[in-house]
């Protein structure tokens, strides 16, 4: 009976993941490996960026008059924020579908999301990356790693650590069923600062991590070290988010750009 319960939990979490996220690894890999009828538009310099802004991005975030006068770095930063905000809303819906999450104290739900959403976001972003670039605008665009790296300080430093993480993470060859459980494990984490009902969350975390372990054994029978490797990725993601949060604080202080209110809430008093 316990095994049946674990399989049901894995299935529920996988279904919630497929239902709530617009992009997933399977879709992203289809596009990145050229198996779609229309390939993504490649953004590799200022000219192609402008072309993309007139078509793909205009559809995505609308064209704001205030943004038109800003430099390319600030406009790209704005697009990154829009993607983050959309992903946070998707992650919130996903979290609510994880059995037990909605029964938690509401303050604890807020805390788990505050600390978990960026770790989950960067884990899922890896699905949209290869060594040369990143899928953007719902898979309709592909922005090159070199172009992102060439942006002026501090914006040029923003994505490179995510690419470095993604290349190692992608070598684990997880599929969407594995990622769904991994993302749930990131969110249901009992050691976030300020949690009220730690034992309740630890019980949830334990059952999700157990299911993840079991699922990896059956889905990747030839890779016995996958589970400990993934636990290490949880540590790496925390470090990645800490550095990202510091960079955001620097941008806020030194650049003439605004931070979305939802992201302000999340970054305020974070680390």
């Amino acid at each position: 009976p316990q095994l049946a319960d674990q399989k049901t939990l894995a299935k529920q979490i996988h279904e919630a993941y497929l239902k709530n996220f617009n992009m997933n690894k399977s879709k992203a890999r289809t596009i990145l490996t050229g198996k779609t009828s229309t390939p993504p538009f490649v953004i590799h310099d200022m000219e192609t960026l402008q072309l993309a802004e007139q078509t793909l991005v205009a559809k995505m975030v609308g064209s704001s008059a205030a943004l038109l006068n800003k430099d390319a770095e600030v406009r790209i930063f704005h697009c990154c924020q829009c993607t983050s905000v959309e992903t946070v809303t998707e992650l919130t819906e996903f979290a609510k579908s994880v059995p037990g999450f909605s029964n938690l104290d509401l303050n604890d739900q807020v805390t788990l999301l505050k600390y978990g959403v960026h770790e989950a976001f960067f884990a899922m972003l890896a699905s949209c990356m290869n060594k040369d670039g990143l899928l953007v605008a719902y898979g309709n665009g592909f922005i090159t790693r070199e172009f992102l790296k060439s942006l002026r300080r501090p914006f040029g430093e923003m994505m490179e650590p995510k690419f470095q993480f993604a290349m190692k993470f992608n070598s684990l060859e997880l599929d969407d069923s594995d990622l769904a459980l991994f993302v749930a494990a990131i969110i249901c984490c009992g050691d976030r600062p300020g949690l009220v009902n730690v034992p309740h969350i630890e019980r949830m975390q334990e059952s999700i991590v157990n299911v993840l372990h079991l699922h990896l054994k059956s889905n990747h029978p030839d890779n016995g070290f996958l589970f400990p490797k993934l636990l290490q990725k949880l540590v790496d993601l925390r470090q990645l988010v800490t550095e990202h949060a510091q960079l955001i604080q620097e941008i806020k202080k030194t650049e003439d750009t605004s931070l979305h209110p939802l992201l302000q809430e999340i970054y305020r008093d974070m680390y």
Partner: peptide
């Protein structure tokens, strides 16, 4: 905590209210 995270709180309580980009 809920007071300092009004948008997250709203998203948790009401899934049908979108966040402006």
């Amino acid at each position: 905590l809920k007071e300092k995270h009004k948008i997250l709180h709203r998203l948790l309580q009401n899934s049908s209210s979108p966040v402006d980009l």
